[in-house]
């Protein structure tokens, strides 16, 4: 009887339901492969020479998902219970020109389930709020093409200024504001571990990849200054392109996981 009972007992003791809960830290910075701590100069795919002197991103929260990026539905609800594998419920303002990581003020927690994608929440708090005046992107610099120079600055918020009418009036809920505030799905294949560090790396160059600075609105001649309009109703290509660049899931953002 002992021979039978002991293995059964041991088997019962060592087995689990699978998986585990984990706690980890999180930080964000400019991509060290791109930035060195000063102004960032680069040539955009559209042929502008850009020197960024300020690039601050307000990362309101991070969520990690088990959902494959290909599985994200266009009209998916902002919250999809049951698919999240990690969360960092705190905000940090990140200097995207600095490789020095800025730590999120709270620990992240989640599970060791396979993470397939990540979400960057650009919100000052409630992702479903009608009004959110948090500046989620603050940039400044100079773009040049040929002899033209475009000193620029821009500060984006995502509030009623970003509300877009539904494509189909019969589908009024097809484009809720919360979707504007969530950058997803950012490809991220990883498995969280206890005590690990989640690192959000920002490549500010990607924000400007499609921006035609020549369409910017001039706000001052002396000194010369162009400004990105913080409103989706703006018809300027530059405004739309930067906003789309800010919200691009592929390009500006990359996650790594250090044990």
């Amino acid at each position: 009887m002992k021979r039978l009972a002991l293995p059964l007992l041991l088997a019962g003791c060592v087995q689990t339901t699978g998986g585990r809960l984990v706690e980890f830290s999180a930080q964000a910075s400019g991509d060290p492969a791109v930035v060195a701590g000063g102004p960032l100069s680069f040539t955009s795919p559209s042929g502008f020479g850009v020197t960024l002197t300020r690039a601050h991103l307000f990362a309101g929260a991070l969520y990690l998902s088990q959902q494959n990026p290909q599985s994200y539905a266009l009209e998916a609800s902002c919250l999809q219970p049951g698919v999240y594998s990690g969360e960092v419920r705190g905000a940090v303002r990140v200097d995207a020109l600095s490789p020095a990581p800025a730590a999120f003020p709270v620990s992240g927690n989640g599970t060791d389930a396979q993470t397939r994608s990540a979400e960057l929440w650009l919100t000052g708090g409630d992702v479903e709020a009608d009004v959110d005046t948090t500046v989620v992107l603050d940039v400044a610099g100079t773009a040049t093409r040929g002899t033209d120079s475009y000193p620029f600055e821009g500060a984006f918020t995502i509030s009623q200024n970003r509300m877009t009418p539904p494509r189909n009036p019969a589908l009024p809920g097809s484009n809720p504001l919360c979707q504007q505030r969530i950058v997803a799905p950012i490809p991220f294949d990883a498995q969280l571990s206890e005590g690990g560090t989640l690192w959000l790396l920002i490549d500010a160059r990607a924000w400007f990849a499609s921006v035609d600075f020549s369409t910017l609105t001039k706000v001052s001649d002396t000194p010369l200054l162009y400004r990105f309009t913080d409103d989706s109703s703006s018809s300027a290509q530059a405004d739309k392109a930067l906003y789309n660049g800010l919200r691009a899931a592929v390009g500006p953002y990359r996650f790594t996981l250090a044990p």
């Binding site: 969520y63 219970p81 999240y84 969360e87 419920r89 927690n109 989640g110 708090g125 409630d126 709020a129």
Partner: peptide, 19 residues
């Protein structure tokens, strides 16, 4: 039990992972 819930007890950001 272990599952995700959000009772809005700790800020406005939702809690989405199991606890």
């Amino acid at each position: 039990y272990n599952y995700a819930s959000d009772f809005r007890t700790s800020g406005s950001l939702p809690t989405l992972v199991p606890v």
